[in-house]
Amino acid sequence: MRIIKEHGERKAEIVDVAQTLFTTKGYANSTVNDILEALNIAKGTFYHYFASKEAVMDAVIEKYIDAEIAAAKIIAEENILTAHEKLFRILYCTGRENEFGDRLENEARAVGNADLHQRTMASIVTGLSPILADIVRQGIQEGTFNTEYPLECMEILLAASEFLLHGSAFSWSCAQRQQKARALAWVAEKALGVEEGQFSYLYEKQEGHKEQL
């Protein structure tokens, strides 16, 4: 007997199962039938919530981004941390370059939908920029940052990072990508008025991540 569940609960279950399949079996190798079998639901139930497998991937990415933004908010609200400490924890410790995030990003590219990727980048920029801008304002009060455009700087830096380092528009080699990360860290230091080397962890993380692949 099938169990009747609330609309939001069933939809969340479909997203969770799809997320597991896409990051383990791969997007291209996963089918709607795989999701149906894992949840023991009818095809009509699936299409009640999602128009296609691609639409589920969209929801999986949205869920992941929401989790990243929520984690950043928690760190930003830690009153005992300095601005530099907050940025380090958000950009280095909880950033997108982790094993799961990397797998999900690779599978998202397999969808082959430029509009989906563009929406993903826009969601990251619009969601994270205000949080990071508040941290920059804290840094200005602490005397460690110096910029007249906290929000705009973070929007530009995040957009550049998403497009140059995470996007699929360029076929950078590993060495080229590392060089872009170094340059972006340098630009961030200049834009936020901090000493050279303060954001070295941005490219050190990129280099360390690529060495593990």
Rank of each mutant, 00 (worst) to 15 (best):
A71R: 14
H48A: 02
Q118P: 00
I69R: 10
Q138E: 14
T126I: 05
E68Y: 06
E13L: 09
H48F: 12
D102E: 11
L213V: 05
S52Y: 08
L165P: 05
V32G: 03
L128V: 09
C174E: 14
E204Y: 12
H7Y: 14
T147G: 06
I131M: 04
K43I: 06
I35G: 02
I80Q: 15
Q179S: 03
K190Q: 15
G197D: 14
F170I: 11
Q19R: 12
L158E: 02
E68C: 08
L81D: 13
V32F: 07
D16A: 10
T24H: 02
G139Y: 12
G197K: 11
E78L: 07
M1Y: 08
T23V: 12
A38G: 06
A114L: 13
K25G: 00
K73H: 06
H84L: 13
A55N: 09
E204M: 09
A12Y: 01
E142F: 00
F145N: 05
V32C: 05
T31L: 06
G197Q: 15
L157E: 04
L39R: 07
G143C: 04
D34N: 13
Q198H: 11
M57G: 08
A71Q: 12
I135W: 09
I124A: 03
A59N: 09
Y64P: 01
A67D: 15
E62V: 05
W186Q: 14
N113S: 07
S129Q: 08
R137C: 07
A55K: 15
A76M: 08
E204T: 08
A133Y: 13
E207G: 00
R103I: 01
A76W: 07
F50N: 04
R109E: 08
L21E: 10
R2G: 00
S168Y: 14
L184P: 00
N33F: 04
R137Y: 00
H117M: 15
T120Q: 11
M121L: 10
G127W: 08
V136T: 09
A51S: 13
A38M: 12
F22A: 01
Y27V: 01
